[in-house]
């Protein structure tokens, strides 16, 4: 297990959200959409310009901009 910023994860990589360091509005929004510590996520793909990223969580697909993904740290299997 190692910690990785969500931005650095590669396609099809799976992990568990460890911490979310965002604050305020963004932090709440991220949680409202189902991204919470302990949630299992899988990177589904990236837009043609590498940003934003699409990921799978709780059975649905969400998109996040890279600068938002920076706030999310994920525990991934090596």
């Amino acid at each position: 297990m190692s910690k990785l910023s969500l931005r650095k994860m590669h396609e099809n990589q799976t992990g568990t959200i460890a911490t979310i360091t965002a604050q305020g509005e963004l932090a709440r929004r991220i949680r409202d959409m189902g991204l919470i510590p302990g949630a299992k996520i899988t990177i589904r793909g990236r837009a043609p310009l590498i940003d934003p990223v699409a990921l799978r969580v709780m059975g649905c697909t969400l998109t996040l901009r890279n600068n938002e993904a920076d706030f999310i740290n994920v525990d991934v299997e090596e």
């Binding site: 509005e25 697909t61 969400l62 996040l64």
Partner: peptide, 10 residues
């Protein structure tokens, strides 16, 4: 702007 956190519906 608002956070982009958005759903890609099936």
């Amino acid at each position: 702007g608002m956070p982009f956190v958005m759903e890609l519906p099936p």
